[in-house]
Amino acid sequence: MTGYGRRIWVLAAGTSSMAGYVDAVGFLKLGGLFVSFMSGNSTRLAVGMMVDPQVARMAITLLAAFVGGVVAGTLISAAAGSWRKRVILLVVGGLLALSGALDLYGWDGWATPLMAAAMGCVNTTFQRAGEVSIGVTYMTGTLVKFGQRLADALLGGPRWGWVPYLALWLGLVAGAVAGSVMYLRFGTASIWGAAGVAVVLAIYAMFLGPAEPSRAPRTREAGR
């Protein structure tokens, strides 16, 4: 993440905040399952297989939806090329809006899997050479890097190298707080707010210039 400029840090922190908002809404709606934190859902799946089959079924549904969103986002990224960031964010906004609409019309069983698909998709926003360069929905790796960069600063390395990672984590936490407040007031309809934020982020991404290639360049095999 430190290889990006400050405007990308802002976009990443904003995207992480939106993801935290969505995860809080999904968590409260599902009563303890997640739409972006798949490590937690994997544990809930394993425990549910032993003690609560209904929880296990919902966990595997969310896991499948999340992976499906990653696959779709990766394919869309490849097709969108330098327009990747804004296109992905618009797709995420569309999925979240559709989730809200389905819940509104009584198809609430589809709402949370669509949220999970949107969160899988949003993780393909930031890519370099075919790999995710900034994960915006999972913070364990971010906190490890924050700790490493903070230690580097104490040892005389770059003084502010830890700031982007802290901003990413704070963005997710702040978004989750906002999502919790909005869900308690508006229920699942609060997901429309996240859809609007995704569109705003897509508009912001338009002013950042073309995205770096999402796939690694192909090289010829030796001897050809």
Rank of each mutant, 00 (worst) to 15 (best):
L154D: 00
L166H: 10
G196Y: 12
V181M: 01
P164E: 02
L155M: 09
W192T: 11
A194Y: 12
A198P: 15
V173D: 02
G193Q: 05
A151S: 06
L155P: 07
D152W: 11
D152Y: 10
G179V: 12
I203Y: 15
G156P: 10
V173S: 09
I203D: 04
A194S: 07
D152S: 11
G179C: 10
L170A: 06
G209W: 13
F186E: 04
A202F: 09
G196I: 12
M182S: 07
R185L: 11
L172P: 03
P213M: 08
L184E: 12
R218G: 02
L155H: 13
V177H: 06
L150T: 14
A211W: 02
A194V: 09
E212F: 03
L170F: 06
G161D: 01
L170Q: 01
A202N: 11
T188G: 03
V173I: 14
Q148L: 03
A202R: 10
Y204A: 13
I191M: 02
M182F: 12
Y165R: 07
A151W: 02
L168Y: 08
R215E: 03
A211I: 05
A195P: 06
W162V: 02
I191G: 00
L170S: 03
P164F: 13
L150E: 00
A211N: 04
A216Q: 09
G193I: 08
I191A: 00
A176D: 04
I203R: 14
D152K: 08
M182Q: 10
F207G: 14
G187V: 01
Y204N: 13
P213L: 07
A151E: 01
V163M: 01
S180Y: 04
I203L: 15
A211T: 03
L201D: 08
F186G: 00
P158F: 14
G157F: 14
T188P: 07
L172M: 06
F186C: 00
S190I: 11
G157R: 14
L168S: 05
Q148H: 00
G209L: 13
M182P: 01
G161N: 03
G179R: 11
I203C: 15
G171D: 05
V173P: 12
W169L: 10
V200S: 07
V181H: 01
S180H: 05
A151F: 02
S180R: 05
F207Q: 14
Q148S: 02
V177S: 02
A211F: 04
P213Q: 05
A211E: 00
T188K: 03
A198I: 15
G193V: 11
F186A: 03
E212T: 05
A205N: 12
A198Y: 15
D152R: 08
L170Y: 02
